[in-house]
Design a protein around this nucleic acid. Sequence first.
DNA 1: GACCAGGCACATC
DNA 2: GATGTGCATGGT
Length: 215
Amino acid sequence: MIYGEKLLKIYKILLKEYGPQEWWPADSPFEVMIGAVLTQNTNWNNVSRAIDNLKNEDLICPHKIAGISKRKLISAIRPSGFYNQKAAYLKGLSRHIVEKYSGDLQKLSKVDTEILRDELLALKGLGPETVDSILLYALNQPVFVIDAYTRRIFGRHGVAIKDSDYSAWQKFFESQLPRDAKLFNEFHALIVRLAKERCRKKPDCQGCPLKGIVL
DNA sequence: GACCAGGCACATC
DNA sequence: GATGTGCATGGT
C-alpha cells in the first residue's frame, strides 16, 4: 500500500474515533493569528487565558495591538509565557498587517500563498509552524502544518525524516495527500487530539486507535 | 519539585 | 549546518 492510502486510512480512523475537531477555536482570523503566536511551546490552556484578557480589553485587532504600549500588551498576554518576546512578535505582525494591508485581512487573504508564506516568515517570531497555522487556520490555504506531535506520532509509526527538517515532513504529507484545506485542517487537529490523549512524551498505546499501524 | 506544553531566535562550535 | 540555550507561565 502506498503512503497516501495509509495516511488517508489513518485520517479516517482518527475522524471516526474522535469526530470533527472544529479547528481553530477562535472568533476571527486575526484571533487565530494571535493564538498561533501565543501557543508557541505553550499549553493551549494558558493561551486561552491570554486571549480572554485581550478580548476583555477589546484588543483583537491589528490596529490596536500595533498601537498600544508594550507594557499593556504584556500584562494581557502574561499567562501564555515568554511574554516579552511574544509581545514583540505580535506587535511586529500587527504593524506589518497595518502598514502593508491597512489592517485589512481580506486584502491579505488575496495574496498568493507562497508569496504570503515568505512574507510572514520574514517577520521576527514567525517560523514555519506558526506561519503555516496562520495560512491554514486563519486564511484557509491548503498547507499541511507540521508540529512536534506530528513528528513524534508518525516517527513512532515508521516515518523516517530527520527531526528538525520541517520542509521534508511537510513535503511528505503534501505529496501524499490531495491538496485540500479542509482535509489538512481536520487531519492536523486530529493528530493533536490523538497526541494529547495518548502520545505525549510517554506513549499510552493500550487501546490506541493507531496501534500496530506502520507506514 | 520535576517535567511538560500546538517554537523561535540567536550564539557557538 | 548542526547543536545548545534562553525565553516564562500554569497544570500534572
